[in-house]
């Protein structure tokens, strides 16, 4: 087993991601978007599976994000596409808070 695959990366003080905020990050070369929906944290790929556009300006809803370019929506927990024009999921990453820091498993 590759131990790096199990290593969480400390990325941001939790206080810098208040409810309903987003934060684009690059972690190990991957474009990641951190989202806080009513206190629930999510880490997802920042790239829309439909057209490769960034999701970071997308609207956060109750458990979803909508790509601002063509309106594809994704489930923040599973990454599944919820509507056309996307049909493929986006990657999601495990996220946790340790000692008031947000950590992501990439």
């Amino acid at each position: 087993m590759n131990p790096h695959k199990l290593a969480f990366t400390r990325v941001l003080p939790a206080s810098e991601l208040p409810p309903n905020a987003k934060k684009p990050l690059s972690i190990e070369g991957k474009a990641i978007l951190l989202c806080n929906v009513n206190g629930q944290l999510h880490a997802i790929s920042n790239v829309c599976s439909h057209n490769d556009k960034p999701l970071e300006r997308g609207r956060l809803g109750n458990g979803w994000i909508a790509c601002p370019t063509h309106g594809a929506r994704f489930d923040l927990a599973t990454g599944n596409a919820l509507c056309l024009p996307a049909t493929k999921p986006i990657a999601t990453y495990e996220v946790r808070v340790v000692e008031d820091w947000i950590e992501v498993l990439v």
Binding site: G58, R59, A66, P68, G71, R73, L82, C83, L84
Partner: peptide
């Protein structure tokens, strides 16, 4: 798409 919401 029908039945959706977002911001743009």
């Amino acid at each position: 798409a029908s039945g959706t919401e977002g911001n743009t």
